[in-house]
Write a protein that binds this DNA or RNA. Sequence first.
DNA 1: CGGTGGCTGGGG
DNA 2: CCCCAGCCACCG
Length: 273
Amino acid sequence: MKYILSFAVLFFLSSALNASEHAYGGIPSKGDYIKRKAYIIQFDAMHKTPRWVAYHVKPSNAENLPDRKIKKWGKFRDDSDINNEATEKDYSNQFKTWRNYAKGHLAPYYISGGDRDNDGITAAEGDKDDAEAVYEIMYMSNMAPQHHSNFNGPGGLWYKLESYVRDDLLKKQRKEVWVFAGCIFGPRSYDRIGDGVEVPPMFFKIIITEEKNKPRILAFFFPHQINKHGDIEDFLVSVNIIEAMTGLDFFPEINDEKMERESTWVNWINNNI
DNA sequence: CGGTGGCTGGGG
DNA sequence: CCCCAGCCACCG
């Protein structure tokens, strides 16, 4: 029995590392996706938002970040790999109306730091390859309209969850983290801005850490149209629910039924004792 | 394009 | 209290 268990752990580890650096347990959908240095993305051309992104981030990637206030780093960029992406113009003047939609990162800025190519120099110190990781994070294809004051900005659920990963998991616990994040659309158009950029009515995020070589999964489902802030714990769901709502298939390379059915509640409680 | 300021809310 | 983070806006 013990042999079987250790074999399962070995298989698990190798599959998690081999499939893709960024997509834990394998690519969650068929169809094209684009591989970047800091993340991978499947773009949703119909809605002009990401369908999903996946990223593997180490504590060092969240440190020594290039200063986003400096235009070179903080400016939004067009993604030459995508034809019909949203533009900055689509998002303009949103703050002057009730709509208040900001360009919300799906793969966040704070994962773009560190010395990804291990040449001893970071982007901020002048490394060109690491700079590319920062530029890619700022691609418009990585953005979706997110209500700033209710969701994306301080106090918002998206902001709180990003802060949890950055401040708690990465900086405090110094764990490696894998994340899937994406937009969820329903049968009707919820809202749109600019030239046909659809505002996602829902978002999801799945966060994976490893504890003694076993995955610890936290899956979140967020309705976008909320008029006040809340606690992220109240939006924990099972991975199965995310799969049902998105049509995605997470962890396809991991042959462990239990993994997908594991309660995220249990993981949350174990994580915070 | 750099720098600065504003908004808002959480944390030391 | 100030600083920080995610955004926007403005000015030179």
